[in-house]
Amino acid sequence: MKKKHWYDYLWIWEIIYFTLGFFNILFAWLGMIEFLLPLLIAIIGGNKAFCNNFCGRSQLFTKIGADCKCSRNRPTPKFFYSKAFRYGFLMFFMTMFANMVFQTYLVAAGAGTLRETIKLFWTFRVPWGWAYTAGTVSDWVAQFSFGLYSMMLTATLIGFIVMVLFKPRTWCTFCPMGSMTQGICKLKAR
């Protein structure tokens, strides 16, 4: 048997993150760790230690998909791991991220109003007002929380769908963070 490490339990962190955000949206800011840490590891260390060891999302997919047998375990269609789709999806994701930051800016500048909703799949607005009491923090801080939580939840839901349909970790083949960190590592290794 292989030795278990502390970081093999980070899938629990993923559950805690979404639970915290369900009750208080401001915890969504913790998601920035999952955004910045992989980039820092790739830029400074030149490796994918985050994907390989610390990614709670991928561990959750392995837990549910492989250990709980909730995955059909069929080969991932070639399309999903083609360079065009991977980088296309990365660009799409970054555009949506920039858009989210822009919405936050609008609220900060007073040109937009805070919307206490979660936007799933960049389309469907879900009321999420119970997770925030207006006036607790500056409106833009709350707006960013709702935006980041929407992104995190959407990514995880897409991941779950492809986990059920294909392999447990099919999401990893086109995960924007994965594509980005691998790109950085490839540039560094040249």
Binding site: S58, G178, A189
Partner: peptide
């Protein structure tokens, strides 16, 4: 390869490594 490390985790003999994240 997308260097996700799924194979590395699954390998019972620890024979797989991810070369410089590539």
């Amino acid at each position: 390869c997308v260097s996700c490390g799924a194979c590395r985790k699954a390998c019972p003999r620890e024979a797989i490594s991810i070369w410089k994240g590539c």
